[in-house]
Design a protein around this nucleic acid. Structure first.
Lengths: 172, 172, 172, 172
DNA sequence: GATGAATGAGTTTTCATTCAT
DNA sequence: GATGAATGAAAACTCATTCAT
């Protein structure tokens, strides 16, 4: 948990690898080759394996990153609707990979779920969302919407209309 | 469309391969090996490649099959709600692979879309669904819900509650 | 040696297979697949294996055919020059496969060699060819020229000029 | 032309693979398996594919090599006759593969052609070769003779006599 | 630490040959 | 006899991972 601090260049490499890998996996699925990621990140393949001992470790690191970013975002979004809208738009645009394989990322996911649960209770307190809705529907709808945004070529307009249905369904 | 009819034994093999492949891909993702499919289907690997010249062709054939089955189902489902419920339940249970890669299956998809569009107008005629909802939201929500059902371990109860949100959002 | 006579349709198939195979091997080399030959000949692959128990047997049969045709031609050509000219032109045009692998075809080759040896002595009697030239140079030059004609894109003009050099070299 | 320089060990492997492949293809034809080449070269099969992404690329590299070696040789041979004699002898002995498939090697061939053209004009200046002979006959005769030398079992004596005919044909 | 070549098991694909229809 | 589906061994090619430079 308390990883020793990296040398500056190593940290830079790690970050670049992570970002490139997220892009590449998003574009080609988890079957994309590590060699290609190395090439696109401008590092040698050995460097990737120094930072992530396994391909699966790389995938897990990406997920951890995504979850952390989303949790941070949830903390400031204000409402579920604002949060969903941004997340789905990002998923569509940046092809953020929302669920890659069944990589185990439970702890990071828990943090994210907590942040969203907070949003949910706030929305319910302000009567923006029905009382009987529970956190797992919300998570399910978020995952579903984000993945849908990936798969289909969701235009911005289609995103809006689809989310509108979901939010109409959530309102009291 | 009118491919010459296969010999009885060949047709039987083709069907068994298709069914087995759907199962295996569902269980292990599209990276599952053709060799394994052959073994589980009880044929030699050459037989698979005689029927489907490429692994991708096999994937495409599965998708075509799924779409055809869904279209048939839509024709008799009565309401969008009934249709969605069944489809999502099946996706969760049988791990039907809803979108494998970006295999091109446009023609089969068009038929499916038509069948669902019919359901939609019937529902709108009977005021079960808002007038301003369009077919592309429906397709988007269906895809999203089915994929969500795949990814997470949606319990039956969670399925019900999630679809309830969506249908509440669709009602006038 | 005394093969039983074939049924008429079988004989027709055998001939068509042989002709098609010669073309296909010429075009794609001996690595061409038997399946492709079957397709182009309009028969099923089983039919090829009924007539020629092995791919190598098919290759050998083609060579026997080619040699027989050439021997017949040599018997009527009149001079070595006329014979060479025709053979090389044909090799270039029809891509007749002159030596495929090292299939053993000694007996048929012997007949061909005899026929050409006759041409050679006639030419030497009429002082068209130097006395000290022997049959094996002739065979070597014929093989070489025919193979050259295959490999390079010998224009008709280039054929003429190349054979002219060889015949100048043969004259007394 | 200016590919980045290989690491010393990689360069050594590349060279060994090339040499081994030339031998193996010469002995067994272009259908020889890459696996066998790997084994004989003492490397793993992956190493071959890292250096030559395709079997065809390997074949092409060999041809480039052969052409380069021949061009170097032509530059110092002095006369066409000397050059031809060496090349044909080598083709017969080492089974140098002169034209493997129809691999595209135009640039390397152009250099070789130039070198031989120089020999031709020198020979013509010294009246060793007729004025009306052109470079393409020479190339055709060289190819033909080399391939002939491969195919048949040309004894050394037969080589001499065959080339003698050709050179008699070239003299003024 | 970074590099990138080598490894070798694993995967897709091809094809001669067999054999049930 | 002909057909063409099935077989399965062999070939080409890929890629995560290791390790010498």
């Amino acid at each position: 948990m308390t990883d020793k601090p990296l040398r500056a260049d190593a940290a830079r490499n790690r970050a670049r690898i992570l970002a490139t890998a997220a892009e590449v996996f998003a574009a080609k699925g988890p079957a994309a080759s590590t060699e290609e990621i190395a090439a696109r990140a401008g590092v040698a393949i050995g460097t990737i394996f120094r930072h992530f001992p396994t391909k699966e470790a790389l995938l897990a690191a990406i997920m951890k990153d995504v979850h952390a970013r989303l949790a941070a975002h949830a903390a400031t979004a204000g409402t579920l609707e604002a949060f969903f809208t941004t997340v789905v738009a990002e998923a569509a645009a940046a092809h953020t990979v929302v669920t890659l394989l069944s990589v185990d990322v439970t702890p990071a996911l828990a943090t994210l779920t907590d942040a969203i649960a907070t949003l949910l209770s706030q929305d319910q307190e302000h009567q923006r969302v029905r009382e009987d809705v529970r956190i797992d529907e919300i998570m399910a709808l978020l995952t579903a919407a984000s993945q849908g945004a990936l798969a289909a070529a969701w235009s911005e307009d289609l995103q809006t209309r689809t989310l509108a249905v979901i939010f109409a369904g959530l309102r009291p």
